[in-house]
Design a protein around this nucleic acid. Structure first.
Lengths: 138, 138
DNA sequence: CTGTATCCTCTAAGATACTG
DNA sequence: CAGTATCTTAGAGGATACAG
């Protein structure tokens, strides 16, 4: 039997997805690209924080997102959670060694961004202007 | 008039979103965390590539994703696209200086991942095992 | 205070078919 | 070969209410 190129691509797709999911760099990217992780990590860089403190500092986060993001970070071993079952209850979050080892990376991303996002923004603007100029009726 | 804490949070939310969107590190993260960008960037690190070559190398990508990702990279000034309107048509893609300046960052993410994803994977497994053990009927 | 459980919306991205 | 257009779907993330 003969497969078309498109069929071959589709046949390879699931294997490839498995490979992608196994790819460590891919996993890291997925781990840190959630909307709030870097903000939480940077906040925890300053030391242990309670749930409510994080809530106050990271203004736009809904409680749901805060909790689920923290859970994910805990699961990945980047953040340690300590609960005290008092009344009212209390939870403290802090970076693990693994979590702290990620901070330099986040810092360099921040640095690259601050140096280059102007250029990116300019590129976007001129590109969008081109598009507008050359826009055509269908 | 008095606002509840929840109302205040919601009031702050849009402003905060605007701030987040203005945050350069956030923008970078969004730019590179699309499923295929790093793969494309790494492939182009080896030099100029045609559309079909990228297609062959980056096995799982649908044509649609490849095209739209490349368009986004072009818009951001990270990739340069050169089209030759011959028959059959031809498009070549290559990194710009800006795009190349991002490669070290991608490399360090790759390096961190390769050093630490084992620890993350172990943490996940033990965490998930805990969960399973302490699972309770509602 | 910390955390779940539900519901609901919106969009990223895949499948498919088509044009120059 | 390169690219566009349309349809569909799975899941991320938000709103809200409730519980220990």
């Amino acid at each position: 039997m003969t497969l078309t190129a498109e069929q071959k691509r589709q046949a390879a797709y699931e294997d490839y997805n498995a490979m992608l999911e196994g790819c460590p760099a891919r996993q890291l990217l997925e781990a840190i690209s959630s909307k709030w992780v870097t903000l939480i990590l940077l906040e925890l860089a300053g030391g242990s924080r309670r749930h409510s403190e994080l809530r106050r500092q990271i203004v736009g986060a809904s409680q749901k997102m805060l909790t689920s993001t923290l859970r994910a970070l805990e699961r990945d071993g980047l953040v340690l959670r300590t609960t005290t079952p008092s009344i009212p209850p209390r939870s403290d979050y802090e970076l693990t060694g693994l979590g702290r080892s990620l901070l330099p990376l986040i810092e360099s991303m921040k640095a690259w961004s601050e140096s280059n996002m102007d250029a990116v923004a300019r590129s976007r603007m001129s590109h969008d202007r081109q598009q507008a100029t050359s826009a055509v009726v269908h």
